[in-house]
Design a protein around this nucleic acid. Structure first.
Lengths: 162, 162
DNA sequence: GTTTGTGCAAATTTTTTGCATTACA
DNA sequence: TGTAATGCAAAAAATTTGCACAAAC
């Protein structure tokens, strides 16, 4: 049997579709084509996305779902733990696929808004320790580091600046 | 001379007004009554706030500033490091006074939306280590832990639920 | 007296909601 | 066929912007 990391895109698509099917059946929700189309689109991306860009990308590909349906579906995908939600300092929710993804956190350049990922085991330790101390059942966390990427730091500007 | 922690509210008010004055002069901005009124209001609070609640609180006290001015002023206070900005999982910016406040992070109850504070030195270590590794000049971070507070965990409900 | 900053209202942006229609079960 | 889900458009919520007027300097 393959480990998650060995799976290719097709495998992953199949697997997450299966996870979604199980979730929908378990919760008595219908298996609509839109839900699977949105899931596929999300798992075809390798970057963070927001609802509007997802809507536009799908529209451009000729598969048009309404924004309302995307918002609805993302709620389901969040609950099914197939997607995670982030906020990188703006009032705009951003998402990313999460199935079989190693837990990671983000480093955001204040200038080019580029998002980098990193992982540090101490965060999990802090998370569980604080849960114990403060009598909380901590389910997840969000750690964002903000700063200047190397390019901005060295040249005073970033190429990707918006 | 007093340490920051020994200062009372009046002392703090004076000090932060002075910090703001220095900032405004340094940046060639005008010292308007609104800016000081907003600063005073913020430093009179002991909780996180959002722009609209600040607007309503000031209005109720008879000191009415426009929301636009509050948004403008908060930009200045952020830049002057007199206020910090947070997002606790909602698309709503929340703020808190930051002068002489020990760096801390937040634990948020998903049910009652109550926000608790904690501090762990390892976060600073992670922050500087990741900056070194990824060639970033990390200026600040935001760590939020999300979960169920004790009350929610034990009773399935929180008294403060909205 | 200049000009910056404020207030107001309108515009934008992001998300939510209501309701008629579609399509899953 | 009954009902949940979709699409659309309108509403809501948060923030930004434009412009006339007020008040710092």
């Amino acid at each position: 049997m393959k480990t998650d990391l060995e799976m290719n895109t097709t495998d992953t698509t199949k697997t997450v579709r299966r996870v979604l099917t199980d979730y929908l059946e378990k919760h008595g929700h219908r298996k609509t084509t839109e839900r699977y189309a949105i899931l596929d689109e999300i798992y075809g991306l390798n970057e963070h996305f927001d609802v509007d860009s997802l809507f536009l990308m799908m529209k451009q590909k000729g598969y048009s779902v309404s924004r309302a349906t995307i918002y609805n579906t993302i709620e389901i995908l969040l609950d099914a733990e197939l997607v995670t939600r982030h906020q990188f300092g703006k009032n705009l929710a951003r998402f990313e696929k999460s199935y079989s993804y190693k837990q990671h956190d983000h480093l955001i350049c204040q200038d080019c808004e580029n998002v980098f990922e990193f992982c540090d085991p101490r965060i999990q330790q802090i998370q569980s320790m604080m849960g114990d101390i403060l009598n909380f059942d901590v389910t997840h966390h969000s750690l964002n580091l903000f700063g200047k990427c190397r390019e901005l730091h060295e040249t005073g500007n970033c190429s990707r600046k918006k």
